[in-house]
């Protein structure tokens, strides 16, 4: 016995060195950092978040104040991305627009994910008529092309950034509901859920404590990928004049205002377009990387 304790203690000493401990988080990090593309994407996303937070402080010019001396001037050292039809510095506008795009992307996906997850859990766990009703509603929502559905919702609610968030969120609900439902169905069959029922745990507890954590990895992956699409949809709506209203430096609205000068001053549309493209790409690559790192079946 004496000996046994000594061995365990020394085992623990070895294990307490950080590189030896295998927590789920360190495992995830080890797999994730192997993927170079995902790491680059993650760095870019981190950069975006920082820019979104401190944007107004680092932007060289005001994003909204017109400067009629410098209308549509091409990119130069003074104006890195040129100026728009009101002489506003496009680079500064993109920097300040970052927070709008991220805000819209994150909140809309978050709302969609929360509602979709709850519906998916209920639908998968209880099955039967509730499942049929929820899934048929999802089918109806799926039948609309995404942007059309969003336009429809905006048409009812009226234009504006808040309504864009709601529209994009609604459009995310059915996908989250389906993803969560399918993982719920498979986790529900597992012996540990049966065993939790057999010790008398009530349904609410089984859903939240035993099934929900298992669906989390697919939610995280889809959540990340979804942010890119949401930013794109929000930008499209603003492009159509249904979202952020001028002079707000929203990327889609900037694209829209530049389209009249596409031939004479292409930089007005090019740079906001590039910002949208890179951001969406970064979120998608990050999502891919997360999926590979979170999937237990992907062995090194």
């Amino acid at each position: 016995m004496e000996n046994g304790t000594v061995i365990t203690q020394s085992d623990e000493l070895i294990q307490s060195k950080p590189e030896k401990v295998k927590t789920p988080l360190s495992e995830f990090w080890r797999k994730f950092k192997k993927q170079k593309m995902a790491m680059v994407a993650a760095t870019f996303v981190l950069l975006l978040i920082i820019v979104a937070l401190i944007g107004p402080f680092i932007a060289p010019y005001s994003a909204t104040e017109p400067d009629y001396d410098n209308i549509l001037s091409p990119p130069s050292l003074e104006h890195l991305a040129g100026t728009d039809a009101f002489g506003r510095d496009i680079f500064s506008r993109i920097i300040e627009g970052t927070s709008i795009s991220l805000y819209v992307g994150l909140t809309s996906v978050f709302i969609g994910a929360v509602i979709g997850t709850v519906l998916g859990l209920l639908s998968g766990y209880y099955g039967g008529r509730l499942d049929s009703i929820i899934m048929r509603i999802c089918d109806v929502l799926f039948a609309f092309p995404g942007i059309l559905l969003a336009i429809g919702i905006i048409a009812i609610l009226g234009p504006g950034l808040e309504n864009v968030i709601i529209a994009v969120a609604v459009f995310g609900i059915p996908t989250f509901a389906r993803i969560v439902r399918s993982s719920t169905l498979s986790i529900k069959e597992s012996v540990y859920v049966e065993s939790a029922i057999s010790i008398g745990a009530p349904a609410r507890r089984i859903i939240w404590k035993h099934i929900f954590p298992g669906t989390l990895s697919s939610i995280i992956v889809y959540f990340t990928m979804r942010i890119g699409t949401s930013i794109l949809t929000a930008a499209s709506l603003s492009f159509l004049g249904l979202g952020a209203q001028p002079p707000s430096p929203e990327w889609g609205a900037m694209l829209s205002s530049g389209r009249d000068f596409l031939n004479s001053a292409p930089h007005v549309t090019f740079f906001p377009g590039l910002a949208i493209f890179l951001t969406v790409l970064a979120f998608n690559l990050l999502g891919d990387g997360l999926r590979d790192a979170l999937d237990p079946k992907m062995k090194d």
Partner: peptide, 18 residues
């Protein structure tokens, strides 16, 4: 009754724990 008066042990110890 479940867990309190009647309890169950399952066949697969490898998958019975969360």
């Amino acid at each position: 009754i479940r867990g309190n008066e009647i309890a169950m042990i399952f066949q697969e110890p490898m998958t019975s724990l969360n």
